[in-house]
Amino acid sequence: MMDHHLSIRPALLVWALTSGATLLSVMTATGGGHADVSHMLGLGATAVVMLAGTVKAWLILQYYLGLGQSGGAWRGLFAAFLIIISAGVFIAQFLIGILY
């Protein structure tokens, strides 16, 4: 039987979702071309951009790389890496908001 992560429909769905998340993050960061890009992003916009990136990374891990078939410990380890990176970027944005 073909592995779930190699089926056509989930693969296309993941591609559509990750592409949509890319568009969403670019639109959020640029305000659809109307925002002053020299201004800092707010915490909400930063959260949306980083959440979109983390979700894309997780979908690639789960469905393209096939991590979904592995044990919970491996999934947990990769999830921890993604959370640390996103949290680090978010904390940096928070500190910039406080300090400047």
Partner: peptide, 22 residues
């Protein structure tokens, strides 16, 4: 292919941090 997906995976993290968040 796993190596290629890793490249993909890393880029989707690099792109927002370097290009979008400011």
């Amino acid at each position: 292919v796993a190596f290629w997906h890793m490249i993909d995976l890393i880029w989707v993290l690099v792109f927002p941090v370097v290009y979008l968040v400011r």
